[in-house]
C-alpha cells in the first residue's frame, strides 16, 4: 500500500496571492484520502494542480512514480486519474446511457475501435453502474432533465465507467439534499471497496469527511496545517482554530 499520488513541496501563486505554499501530501493506494480546509485555503488550487489545469511554480507531483506536473488534463486522465467537477458537468442533451458510453476507458482504445459500435458488455456495464447509483430507471432520460443531486450521481457513475485507478472528487456533497448525502457516502465507500478505486476527496463538510476518509489532510492559508486519522484531525486544536477563525 504505497502512495499513488505523491505531492512534494508544491507552490502556486496567482499574481501576488500565494494559493499553495510548499505543500506535500500522499494519496494512499487503495484508500480514501480526504482534504479539508476553510474557504480560500487553497484546496481547489491544489486539486487543479494535480489534475493538470494549471502549471505549478515549484515542487513535484508524481502519479505511480511518474512526474505529471507538466502533463495536460487529457494525458493525466488517460493515465487513470479522473476528476469530477464541483459544478457538476454532464452531457445534458444526451440520455444517461450515452453519457455513460462517452466515458468508456479511452486509454486502452485502439485506432480501429473508434469506428466500432459499443459492445454489449459496455452497455451492460453502463446499465449496471447506473443501477449502482440508482439511476437505472432514468437511463433513457435526458441527463439535463435530472435533478442536481441525480446529475452528481450520474457524473460519479460516468467516472466509475472509466475504470479509473484513482478518482478525485471536488466537494461531492456540495449542493446535495442532506438526505441524499448518506447514500452518496455509502456509494463512495462501496466504490472504494468493491471496485478497488483509490479516492481523493475534497470536502468542506467536516461530518462527511470524518465518516468517509481514512486519512485526512488539512490546508489553511495555502499551507499544510495538519494530517492524520479523522480522530487526530478532529481533536487538533489548530484545525479547530482554522475552521472557527474562518467563520
Amino acid at each position: 500500500m504505497g502512495a499513488m499520488i505523491e505531492v512534494r513541496n508544491v507552490s502556486k501563486a496567482f499574481g501576488g496571492v500565494q494559493a499553495n505554499q510548499d505543500v506535500s501530501m500522499d494519496v494512499t493506494e487503495g484508500g480514501i484520502t480526504g482534504l479539508i480546509g476553510p474557504n480560500g485555503s487553497g484546496k481547489t488550487t491544489l486539486f487543479n494542480s494535480i489534475v493538470g489545469y494549471h502549471p505549478i511554480d515549484g515542487g513535484s507531483i508524481r502519479f505511480e512514480g511518474q512526474e505529471i506536473s507538466k502533463f495536460r488534463v487529457p494525458q493525466i486522465a488517460r493515465l487513470g486519474m479522473l476528476r469530477t467537477f464541483q459544478q457538476t458537468r454532464i452531457y445534458g442533451n444526451m440520455n444517461c446511457v450515452k453519457n455513460m458510453l462517452i466515458s468508456v476507458p479511452h486509454r486502452s482504445m485502439g485506432f480501429l475501435e473508434i469506428f466500432g459500435d459499443h459492445s454489449t458488455q459496455e452497455l451492460e456495464k453502463a446499465e449496471h453502474l447506473l443501477e449502482f447509483v440508482g439511476l437505472y430507471g432514468k437511463r433513457k432520460l435526458m441527463a439535463g432533465d435530472l435533478s442536481f443531486g441525480q446529475q452528481k450521481l450520474l457524473e460519479f457513475a460516468m467516472a466509475l465507467m472509466n475504470d479509473p485507478k484513482v478518482l478525485l472528487l471536488d466537494e461531492p456533497t456540495a449542493g446535495i439534499n442532506p438526505t441524499l448525502i448518506n447514500g452518496l457516502i455509502d456509494r463512495l465507500k462501496r466504490a472504494n471497496e468493491e471496485f478497488g478505486i483509490t479516492l481523493f476527496v475534497i470536502e468542506h463538510n467536516m461530518r462527511v469527511i470524518m465518516n468517509l476518509a481514512e486519512h485526512i489532510y488539512c490546508l489553511a492559508h495555502g499551507e499544510m496545517l495538519a494530517e492524520g486519522t479523522p480522530e487526530t484531525i478532529r481533536n487538533d486544536q489548530r484545525v479547530i482554530d482554522a475552521y472557527l477563525g474562518a467563520h
Binding site: Y53, H54, P55, K70
Partner: peptide
C-alpha cells in the same frame, strides 16, 4: 496562432 498555442501549452492551457 501557432505561437500563441505554444505559449498557452506552457500554461497547460
Amino acid at each position: 496562432l501557432v505561437w500563441r498555442q505554444i505559449q498557452m501549452a506552457q500554461h497547460r492551457q
